[in-house]
């Protein structure tokens, strides 16, 4: 009990803190899942609604391809690969930490203070206690599209490409999750601006579902250097699908996603901690 409440006091502090954090997350998330399960009909309706919403989402892309054979020289099959990868990564990010966007509301109504008094990391508490399997709708739909894309694209399968698919989804999910935490942390500085985050989380997920070379340069720069979302889908896809980008980018960028993911975690941690230190409650 005592060492769970204050993990930083124990020996082998780093590792123990990590296991405690993961344990706390799982504990809170499973409690939330059990509570959702008490309202099965409501849960089922929601999951269904979420599936329909996401299917409609892809209809938009399919409609474009009724008018054209290619988009920025990419075929529907290739765009579906991007869409599936982006959807899976952002879906997993949303499932794991998406609730962090409630930070803005919680700061405004003062309930964030309650989280700070609990003996669990506030970020874990915020994300896990509103964990919901309803978000599986998005992941399920994206996984289906991605599986189809893997089958219909003419991929020259090598062990390297197999590994690259797994690395892409892993690193991509981490980058997406970090994006969520960073954009939600804006709430520590600006009150009531929850929607700004959506421009980069939902907007970012939308943008990287398309070959980014169709965007103007400023948007590509934003998606590369500010929020490096091109590493989630576009750059690994160039390698896996074996295509050249008209942007003539250096080859090593295609395999840089794990490095970028690591850097994003560092940035997210720093931004969150700085915000937390700055936080003085809204009071009333």
């Amino acid at each position: 009990m005592a060492d769970r409440a204050a993990p930083h006091l124990g020996p082998r502090a780093g590792r123990q803190a990590l296991t405690t954090t993961v344990e706390a997350y799982l504990l809170l998330a499973s409690a939330r899942v059990r509570s959702d399960w008490q309202y099965r009909t409501s849960f089922a309706v929601f999951l269904f609604a979420s599936l329909v919403i996401n299917v409609f989402d892809f209809v938009g892309i399919a409609v474009l391809f009724t008018k054209t054979e290619t988009l920025g020289d990419w075929s529907l099959d290739q765009v579906a690969f991007l869409y599936g990868a982006a959807g899976l990564c952002f879906g997993i990010g949303d499932l794991l930490v998406g609730s962090v966007e409630n930070l803005s509301t919680k700061i405004k109504d003062g309930s964030f203070d309650v989280l700070l008094t609990r003996p669990v990391n506030a970020l874990v508490n915020l994300t896990a206690s509103e964990f919901t399997l309803r978000r599986l709708g998005k992941i399920g739909q994206a996984a289906a599209i991605f599986a189809i894309a893997l089958a219909v694209n003419d991929i020259d399968w090598t062990p390297g490409r197999g590994v690259a698919v797994i690395v892409m989804l892993g690193a991509g999910s981490v980058i997406a999750s970090a994006t969520w935490v960073i954009t939600a942390s804006i709430a520590f500085w600006l009150i009531n601006t929850r929607e700004i985050g959506n421009a980069f989380t939902y907007g970012g997920g939308l943008a990287i579902s398309y070959p980014v070379h169709v965007f103007e340069q400023w948007l590509r720069v934003l998606l590369t250097f500010i929020f490096p979302l091109v590493f989630v889908s576009y750059l690994p896809a160039l390698y896996i699908l074996g295509i050249d980008s008209p942007l003539a980018l250096p080859d090593f960028l295609r395999w840089s996603s794990p490095v970028v993911a690591g850097a994003m975690v560092l940035v997210a941690t720093r931004v969150w901690r700085r915000g937390l230190r700055r936080y003085r409650s809204t009071g009333s």
């Binding site: 929607e195 700004i196 959506n198 421009a199 980069f200 939902y202 907007g203 939308l206 943008a207 398309y210 965007f215 103007e216 948007l219």
Partner: peptide
Amino acid sequence: VTNTMFGFI
């Protein structure tokens, strides 16, 4: 900000 961003995409 968000609507404008979606508009550009």
